[in-house]
Amino acid sequence: MRLATAVCLFFCLFSAGCASDSNFDYRLDSIVKPYSFSIMGWELENISGGIGQSSQDSEVGVTGGPEQVEQYFSLVEQIKALEAEIRAITDSGEEDGLASLEAELGGLERQKAALRGVVEAVLAGQIREVLSGQGISKFPPLDFKLDKPPRLLVVSPRDRIESIREICLHQELSLEEIEEIEARVDELGVSSLVLEIGGLGATYPSFVADDASLRFTVDTVAEEWLHQYLVFRPLGFRYLLDLTGISRDYEIATMNETVASMVSKEIGAIVYEKYYFQDETGGDSQPPAGPEFDFNREMREIRRAVDRYLVRGEVEEAEEFMELKREYLVSEGYRIRKLNQAYFAFHGTYADSPTSVSPIGLEMKELRSRRASLKDFLDVAAGMTCRQDLIASLE
């Protein structure tokens, strides 16, 4: 009941929207409304199925283990390869063998779907066990669904990099619809970007993408749960106020995202090493096309250059620069569809990521190095309500 009450409070706040610029919000809403993903509607559908069901299943025991999990993610890779082959044939205009490939794809999808529930329960149990071993509270109960998360529309001002609106859109948007949404939102005088996301902790159970690698999935399950965990602590609650527009604070957003990212990577590493470790790095990141190309360094340099343009008020020059750099990154093998202020606003909230120039990342890493345990670090960070608290913790 305590969790259900908190979830209801969360979505009441979430649906309250932003009151700071009613005219802008009205115009924005008129654009996105036909494409919006209803979090409340999804919750009502899934609450009837029983909140926390997969968590309970993993506690009483499930018929499955690491073998079924590895089989599931092997199917994910086979499906990706087959889909790429089908796209290549379709793009070429030929149809030879297409029917048999589509039938094979359907068979793989059915095998994957049959394993999904077991995989959800097994991973939930493994992550819960690691959380217990670290002494971290397991409230709220860890529960997630492997599914295709909603897309996310991110809106930033053009003259600075800051996420001022984030809106969930439904999953099955075509590229044409995405570009139309972005073009219409940009006409409001802002920078926008529609993204695919790996997970969403604003729902309970949380969404986690069902087409990623095992390592990415483990990290994401932990990260989305941590967002839910933090909502019941000062840092996460302040982030909730930022998300709903009640009290905007980009530094709080950056702190919250950075803590969740750092802790989830540690939890994920323990889970992966304990149950699935092989002589590989895992993950979904694309390798650079050339041995001397450093993507992280390049993105930081781009971000710093963009900030310099914007400080001087050279908005159009900044946008031209980002497009040139996007084309360069594509030539190096990094398929970035759109590089703009909204891109950096979204990715920049992860201060431990290459697209961020925020000092919060280094400050959080310094705090982690001073704490003997992951739990201690999480407890201290979760109790913060502003960046000054972070700075004070390092004095």
Rank of each mutant, 00 (worst) to 15 (best):
V306F: 13
A209T: 06
S92N: 02
L153R: 06
A6M: 13
G93A: 00
R128I: 10
R116N: 02
A260P: 03
E43G: 11
F237V: 01
L3N: 09
M322E: 03
K375A: 11
D186P: 04
I336R: 05
S15I: 08
G313E: 04
F237N: 02
L82T: 11
N296W: 05
G268S: 01
I39M: 10
Y309D: 01
N23A: 13
L98H: 04
S163F: 04
V231L: 13
E102K: 13
Q53H: 12
Y328V: 04
M255G: 03
P140Y: 12
R27M: 01
I39R: 11
G290T: 15
G283P: 03
E320Q: 08
S22N: 04
E95N: 00
D284C: 01
R184D: 07
E45T: 03
Q78V: 02
A289Q: 14
M299F: 01
R110M: 07
C12W: 15
E363L: 14
S358R: 07
Q78P: 04
G64I: 12
A260F: 04
R326Y: 10
D294L: 10
L394G: 03
I391H: 07
R238N: 05
D389G: 07
P287W: 13
V118A: 05
Q111Y: 01
S264Q: 02
R371T: 05
H170F: 11
I39S: 08
Q111G: 05
L152M: 07
E95K: 07
A222R: 01
M40H: 10
S358E: 03
E224G: 03
E166D: 02
V119S: 05
Y35D: 00
R304A: 15
D57N: 10
R160S: 11
L362D: 08
T90I: 11
M384K: 05
P141F: 12
L98Q: 04
S58C: 14
V357W: 07
F377M: 09
K265A: 01
G65D: 07
A88G: 05
S20H: 14
S22M: 09
R87N: 15
R110V: 09
D219W: 14
P288N: 12
K265Y: 06
L98S: 02
F144D: 05
L108Y: 10
P354S: 00
Q111H: 08
E301K: 13
P34S: 02
P66R: 06
S36Q: 09
L175D: 06
E251D: 14
R128G: 14
I164S: 05
G199W: 11
E224W: 07
D96M: 00
Q341C: 12
